[in-house]
Design a protein around this nucleic acid. Structure first.
Lengths: 232, 232
DNA sequence: TATTCATATATGTATATACATAATTAAGCT
DNA sequence: AGCTTAATTATGTATATACATATATGAATA
């Protein structure tokens, strides 16, 4: 059809186009891999790769023996980059600043333990800090670190480097949970973020694990001017 | 090594483990495809597939000639499902209810046009509606639909079906932008969501396009009890 | 020293082939 | 009819091979 060389990208994009432009309506059974391979003058493996990518993106549904059809209820997914505060701020062309508020070994409250599925309250490090963009408060971070899984954190110096940045280099995670929500600023948060108590704030919570063991729980508070943007 | 059959999953998981457990530290140059293929007793293509998946997940960085290394600054991404309100509510075991507030053809205000990069204010459909979970307000939706790209929307009956649901079936999108933020409830929003004016709300904005043409802009407002949860 | 160029090399992709696996359909049996 | 079993079929995966392509490296050159 196209004079171009067959490529899984070409095929993927063409199929994607047919779906977007409703040549193939949702629910339609599309031709099999063999047929498409012939149509595009490509090998079945090449078509397979294209189809797998589209299935992974959620716009196709594939089943053995039954064939491939255009997703009827496309459970589509979007991605967002897991923000790393320094990069996020510097990428906007702003100057990044960091201020440590407190860092101490302390017993974690009930709530925190429960969130991390920890039985013991002890061996926890509590870090509170502030991230600024162009000298304006950008994010208030309240973090608990599990010293059982990351004992090195005892020796970490959080005066110059944020716990996030430190953890990235010392304790990679294998799984994570992210929660985003809106809330009202507490008195503490308000004074730190230079807003008024009760003002809306954008809150991100992040829990990370390695091999099922909880590493850290971060509670991240932004003033309501913050926007989390992502594309598909 | 393993007595199992070689498989790109086995290889992927094993490499993933080595990275998570810091056998290979960030920045390390890992063995080439040939070497890994030999180690796992698999073909290079199989190793390649495993490596490509890990690279796509952001934990490996690959460059031709230079080889593959463990990402130094893992720009990791997480995914979230693009919420479809009815499914979201029913998945929680709640009863979904829908209430149309208004649907009319109207000129869009400056702001809306700008967001959609539209020159003309006209040919727009403005829909406002409310989604409830177990009879409690769950989301207030304020949506503009571009009738130039989706003329069928004139004939759509938004009394029984939300515009989101209708659009899913009639105008698939090829690209989208999502914005999440916190805000304060306006008087209108407050009375609809049964909260007080000024209370924090979680706001999602969604713009979709087909082939570069804007389809719709949705402004979605949740009470602050709402949580957007996602895993990695 | 700096620049250009050729070369080597690791990854990227395409292909034919083969077999595995899930799931539907048909056949056979009670 | 109801059940079990076998054949069929589309996708899933693995492999050997071949060539494409980006790029690091060192050699040749200005």
């Amino acid at each position: 059809m196209t004079s171009e060389r067959a490529s899984f990208r070409t095929i993927r994009d063409e199929l994607s186009r047919r779906i977007a432009e409703r040549v193939w309506l949702p629910g339609t059974l599309i031709p099999g891999e063999e047929a498409l391979a012939e149509e595009f003058g490509a090998a079945r493996a090449t078509v397979n790769r294209a189809l797998q990518e589209l299935a992974r993106a959620g716009i196709l549904e594939r089943k053995r023996r039954a064939g491939t059809r255009v997703a009827l209820h496309p459970v589509r997914e979007a991605r967002f980059v897991i923000p790393r505060i320094r990069q996020e701020i510097e990428a906007r062309g702003s100057e990044y600043q960091y201020r440590l508020l407190s860092a101490e070994i302390a017993d974690a409250p009930e709530v925190i333990c429960a969130r991390l599925s920890l039985l013991s309250k002890s061996d926890m490090m509590h870090v509170r800090c502030l991230h600024l963009a162009d000298r304006v408060p950008y994010q208030y971070e309240d973090r608990w670190i599990n010293l059982r899984t990351v004992p090195d954190a005892r020796k970490a110096d959080f005066k110059t480097m944020g716990p996030n940045e430190w953890l990235v280099g010392h304790a990679p995670f294998s799984s994570a949970e992210f929660i985003f929500m809106a809330g009202a600023a507490s008195a503490d948060e308000a004074s730190l973020l230079q807003i008024r108590e009760g003002d809306p704030v954008f809150i991100g919570e992040r829990i990370t694990w390695v091999k099922g063991e909880p590493i850290t729980l971060a509670h991240l508070v932004h003033p309501s001017s913050h926007r989390m943007v992502t594309h598909l």
